[in-house]
Design a protein around this nucleic acid. Structure first.
Length: 387
DNA sequence: TCTGGGGTCCTAGGACCC
DNA sequence: TCTGGGGTCCTAGGACCC
């Protein structure tokens, strides 16, 4: 989906179309006041009433920027303060996940009605296997891609960009070629001309660290990466990652489109308005800690999961991260239990430095129904062993 | 000008079991 | 008294993605 969060906001506030808008920061009282004041006439709110990026004081990052804002160099994951310098006049709206999830569900349902083999990749992205969809091969997939764009736009007013290719790796890169509202098709035979000139960083799975290391070896483009022998890559990047880099550079990717999966963990974390100290701010920290546990427990219950590994995450003021976890005997989704073991984890971590972030995580998840079943089986096993 | 929140997967060492 | 090899699970950290 193109600039997904921002595009959803623009549906509510059409008067912002064509302007630099960024989404980020927390929900603030003045935004709520704005919504309260205008009720369901949000489209009537005059431009002058919207909060500006330059007036924002807080620690946060941009989650999405509209294309006009991107012209100023503002982009996702950029700190607010830096973004404010680049484009102070941008309008800043808080994130509204409830709304984004609603539209996410809607566009995914449309895709599923056209092509049932869909892999979820987060709120705004999916992989789709066209292979066996009737008409999926017409014009190299363009006909079906156009149908999806049109159907999604008519139902939601949102645009998306689609890349069509023989595998997920290439399709992902192809989807970036023609944004927004674009379709691009990369055939196997086009790979070298279309993909090799790109920077290695464009490969999904090459992040800042790997990219820097590749650069240190003089490897800038995917073509240069492809020219390196597989053994050389393995020697420098490890057996698994090296081999994967080699395959990726040659457009080889046999991962299937995975239509169903179970979550592995659920977590809640929060960055404080100001750095807190374990001793000095004990009460406040304790309140936040408990709330995070309550939230994770509620998430687990709402989604029907229980877990048996409970953990915490800290980010210190120097940005270093520490995690601790503990696996317990029984699966739980109970806030008090989570709080108790998370508290034990907290005791095992250094607490002299100021803290910037605190998180609580429950992993090793199992659907709650399976937990009941496992318990029942365990009981019958125990009674059997008695005889 | 400091850098969100929610995830997944991988690695590596150690405990423990057979 | 010294010494196997395979396998699983747990834990901490880190890279990466949306």
């Amino acid at each position: 989906m193109d600039a997904f969060y921002a595009s959803v906001e623009l549906l509510r506030y059409p008067q912002l179309k064509g302007l630099p808008v960024v989404i980020g920061g927390g929900r603030r009282s003045e935004d709520e006041a704005l919504v309260a004041k205008y009720g369901d006439r949000l489209a009537d709110i005059p431009l002058a009433e919207f909060p500006l990026l330059k007036d924002y004081v807080g620690r946060g990052v941009i989650t999405t920027a509209t294309y006009p804002a991107r012209q100023f160099g503002v982009g996702s994951a950029m700190g607010m303060m830096k973004a404010a310098r680049l484009c102070p006049q941008a309008i800043m709206l808080p994130v509204d996940f409830v709304q984004y999830r609603r539209f996410s569900r809607q566009f995914k349902d449309i895709i599923l009605s056209i092509a049932p083999r869909m892999e979820d990749r987060g709120v705004d992205e999916v992989y789709i296997d066209f292979t066996d969809v009737p008409g999926g091969q017409r014009e190299g997939g363009r006909v079906l891609a156009r149908l999806m764009q049109k159907t999604i736009f008519e139902a939601t007013g949102l645009t998306c960009s689609i890349g069509v290719a023989p595998n997920k790796q290439i399709a992902k890169m192809a989807s970036e070629f023609n944004k927004p509202n674009g379709i691009s098709i990369v055939h196997e035979s086009d790979f070298e001309t279309m993909i090799w000139p790109l920077a290695c960083r464009k490969i999904n799975g090459v992040g800042p660290k790997a990219d820097a290391k590749l650069k240190s070896h003089g490897i800038e483009t995917i073509g240069q990466l492809a020219a390196k022998p597989r053994d050389w890559l393995i020697a420098h990047f490890g057996k698994s990652y090296g081999a994967w880099l080699h395959a990726a550079a040659h457009g080889r990717d046999d991962r299937p489109v995975v239509t169903e999966s179970e979550p592995v963990s659920m977590s809640r974390e929060t960055t404080f308005d100001r750095d807190l100290h374990a001793v000095h701010d004990k009460a406040e920290l304790g309140r936040i800690f408990t709330e995070l546990c309550v939230q994770v427990a509620a998430d687990l219950k709402r989604k029907g999961y229980a877990g048996k590994t409970i953990g915490i995450k800290l980010r210190y003021d120097d940005f270093k991260i520490a995690t601790r976890d503990q696996t317990i005997d029984d699966y739980t989704q109970d806030a008090a239990t989570i709080r108790r073991f998370a508290g034990l984890c907290l005791k095992r971590v250094p607490l002299h430095k100021r803290l910037r972030l605190l998180g609580v995580r429950v992993g090793n998840l199992l659907p709650q129904d399976d937990v009941e079943q496992a318990k029942a089986e365990q009981r019958s096993g125990e009674s059997a062993s008695l005889f």
